[in-house]
């Protein structure tokens, strides 16, 4: 009887150790696979967000199609692929009118900044929705301290702050 009891106890301890080992390995495998799955989901989500932002910009272009502006203020815009565009504005128009005219051209990249040659200055003409999209697109670079942070246009600003016959450069940002 004592011998049998001892053998049974030993077997029970052995079985319990085996069970514990199996549970431990299962937990490790599960944790690793769940982390892998979350990483994959995150990547897919980021890709979807990127496509959504691109579609928003394209939809905005479609909405703008056909609009023209007239006025005494003449601006020459150069695009990254070398093409040019001469725009006419009324000085009292808001800055977003310049943004609309620039982005309407097919040569305009999805993400861009506008720079004036003389006087040398950055032209802040983003509407609020584009500012949000731009910051979301380059969120990682923003966190790394990159200087690609877009500045929202000042709504009270008008195009009259830009001298007549100015040359503006559109720079590609990616």
């Amino acid at each position: 009887m004592p011998t049998n009891n001892h053998v049974q106890k030993e077997k029970f301890a052995e079985d319990r150790a085996l069970l514990s080992q199996q549970n431990k390995e299962y937990a490790e495998s599960l944790a690793k696979d769940i982390a892998k799955k979350e990483e994959k989901d995150k990547i897919r989500f980021e890709a979807e967000q990127k496509e959504l932002r691109k579609k928003t910009i394209q939809d905005y272009r479609e909405k703008l199609k056909g609009t023209v502006s007239q006025g005494p203020l003449r601006l020459l815009v150069r695009y990254p692929n070398g093409s040019r565009l001469i725009l006419s504005f009324s000085p009292s128009q808001p800055m977003t009118s310049l943004f609309d005219a620039i982005i309407l051209n097919p040569a305009c990249p999805d993400y861009f900044s506008v720079r004036s040659v003389y006087p040398r200055a950055e032209i802040h003409c983003y509407p609020a929705w584009y500012h949000t999209i731009f910051n979301a697109e380059f969120k990682d670079e923003t966190e790394k301290g990159a200087n690609n942070v877009a500045k929202e246009t000042n709504e009270v600003k008008c195009l009259e702050t830009i001298p007549n016959n100015s040359i503006l450069y559109v720079n590609l940002i990616q």
Binding site: Q22, N23, E25, Y26, E28, S29, L30, K32, D33, K36
Partner: peptide, 10 residues
């Protein structure tokens, strides 16, 4: 699966 043996054992 990282460790299919462990998963099936459990």
């Amino acid at each position: 699966i990282t460790n299919p043996k462990a998963v099936l054992e459990v």
